[in-house]
């Protein structure tokens, strides 16, 4: 033991005294301790300010718009002619484009996403899963502008080679590509929901002689249903808000049509077109941006709240 040599040296440096000395001098640190939480609260409230900013700008400018165009006329109008001599501002063409492109996207992403989730969570070995999942996630990391390029310069020409009636800009191609973009989101969220189904539930079914497939459809998917639904809702929200793919590949036709071989405009694409086109501040067309954006915001907000509500219910189940 060498403790004694330590205590001999003690006379040289008296730590206790040094600390006491420093403490007497430092009111500064007490002040820091008081200021830091306030500073952090201010920083944290920036996220609230962002929300307030979004809601305030959208509401106040949209309010200006509705002073000029009655809200009912906007919501129920089937004609959108913002630049004509006698402009009309009907939302339905845009709503229609948004809904149709989202439906196409979900028809791709829904089945493929959930089948991928089933494969990854129920069939794939750990090794296969560990390779496929990150690869799939690359899809989610590709910027949407790249998908837009792909839809416009590859998918559309391929579709047109098979079906010449399809127009050069159409809603089908961006809808499909958007679907591919959303696959990883649905696959990974649904897979999370499925893997969190306790193994005991699977074993119960398997022990009765059910095949893996039957177990998946009769036990796993029902148990994970709210997680799966929530992933779908988030996917829809993502599709509604997606901008670049449809802007590039679907053109800017404002026709109110259900023909997916034609060009249609979504709410997002309208915002890009109008804001990029030097809409003079104060004009009705300028304010229409905010009315459309407000609609978009409300739609996605409802979807996100719905997704959270559904998945929270799901967590209570086990």
């Amino acid at each position: 033991m060498t403790t004694n040599s330590g205590s001999e040296k003690k006379s040289a440096v008296n730590v206790r005294e040094m600390i006491a000395e420093k403490k007497r001098k430092r009111n500064f640190s007490a002040l820091t301790e008081k200021i830091i939480p306030i500073l952090l609260l201010i920083i944290a409230s920036i996220s609230i300010l962002t929300t307030v900013g979004i809601i305030y700008t959208l509401l106040s400018e949209a309010f200006e718009f509705f002073k000029r165009i009655p809200i009912w006329e906007f919501i129920s109008g089937t004609v959108l002619k913002p630049l004509s001599q006698e402009p009309e501002f009907g939302l339905l063409p845009l709503l229609n484009g948004t809904i149709i492109s989202s439906v196409i996207a979900m028809l791709v992403a829904g089945p493929i996403g959930i089948m991928s989730a089933v494969y990854l969570s129920e069939y794939a070995s750990e090794k296969v899963r560990k390779t496929l999942k990150p690869l799939l996630e690359i899809l989610a990391g590709i910027p949407t502008i790249v998908y837009g390029f792909f839809a416009f310069t590859f998918v559309t020409p391929v579709i047109r080679a098979v079906f010449p009636a399809v127009e050069a800009t159409n809603i089908l191609s961006p809808g499909l590509v958007m679907g591919v973009m959303i696959i990883p989101m649905i696959a990974s969220l649904s897979e999370d929901a499925m893997t969190s189904v306790p193994n005991s539930m699977r074993e119960g079914a398997l022990a009765l002689g059910a095949t893996k497939l039957e177990t998946t459809f009769k036990v796993v998917i029902p148990a994970a249903l709210s997680g799966i639904i929530s992933s779908f809702v988030l996917g829809i929200s993502r599709a509604i808000g997606e901008t670049m793919i449809v802007t590039i590949a679907s053109g800017s036709s404002k026709n109110f049509t259900f023909d997916i071989t034609q060009s249609m405009q979504t709410m997002t694409a309208y915002i890009v077109e109008v804001s990029g086109g030097e809409a003079p501040a104060g004009s009705t067309i300028y304010y229409s941006l905010y009315a459309v954006a407000l609609t978009l915001f409300v739609f996605t907000l409802i979807m996100n709240l719905l997704a959270r509500y559904v998945s929270r219910k799901f967590r209570e189940e086990y």
């Binding site: 403790t3 440096v13 040094m18 600390i19 430092r26």
Partner: peptide, 25 residues
């Protein structure tokens, strides 16, 4: 510990390190 209580001198710190480690054998 010494640093958060305001002791900065390298010489003092060196000495504290040796002494404490000896103290804890």
């Amino acid at each position: 510990g010494p640093k958060i209580h305001g002791i900065r001198s390298k010489k003092v710190l060196d000495e504290i390190v040796e002494r404490s480690l000896r103290g804890a054998s």
